[in-house]
Amino acid sequence: MQVKETILSVTGLEKYYGTFHALKGLNLEVKRGEIFGLLGPNGAGKTTMIRILVGLIKPNKGTVRYFDKIDLKDLNDALPRIGSIIEEPRFYPYLSGKLNLHVSARYYPTKISNKRISELIELVGLTGRESDRVSTYSQGMRQRLGIAQAMLNDPEIIILDEPTNGLDPKGIIELRQLIIRLKEEFGKTVILSSHILSEVEQMADSMAIINKGVCVSQGNVSELLSTNTVNVSLETSDLPASKVMIETMGFKVRQEQQTLEFQTELESIPKVVAKLTAADQKIFRLDHRRKLEDYFLKLTAA
């Protein structure tokens, strides 16, 4: 099995805004070539962390290390290898999309050719509109121009903060395809923050859940989501009798007003249903949610 190189590690990151403790010792590790999802409710600290990663904010404590050797104090050595979109991309509205890219290109130490800019315009599907003023662009077009801007320096890491915010469904799908392409076709490492579980689920290889400034869970998305354990919610004609029957199957059941709640493996649900129907219990409703969804919902509700 191939061990992937750690491209970014964050250790004990803390940030205060006045007395507000935004990050409380955050730890993360991102491997090369993966799409890493940073999931958390609004206000969890995702944007603060991302702003620290790109040098917009200075942390009060903790370390950030890129490529296993570059610390925050030498961030300018790492930034030529990083591209980013922080929240929604912003441009000079009075300049064309192409000229905006030319302006951004001048901030890099090595010259970025016209050919490269034209290639990127084509990659993000803005060919034909590149000479129009950005003020005439739709939100989706700006988002794609943002990706082109983040790709100018052919970075190894692309950091995207809530990239689908404000996009219509078509824009979301297009952007999602583009992000997956960046990883698969161009081998980029993508760090993607979002407050939408399904978004991370569909794109990310690994993920971390951040809540109230701490990382509460981190791991491989498929492992986290492939767990068969589900939370079942059941409504039957006779709750106390059904509860006893399910408990005899070895499950710990909790009765909540009109429902029974218990945890089980996905494969066990038909057996439970069979047992209840055999005993003439009428099943009015049966829902199941994966643990991660419940976990995340609990976080977002907090």
């Binding site: 790109v54 930034l79 929240e87 991309p89 912003r90 441009f91 951004s104 901030y107 801007q149």
Partner: peptide
């Protein structure tokens, strides 16, 4: 105000 400052400053310039 325009939001472009954060984009300039994420580039490798002091």
């Amino acid at each position: 105000a325009m939001g472009t400052l954060r984009y300039s400053l994420t580039k490798p310039i002091s």
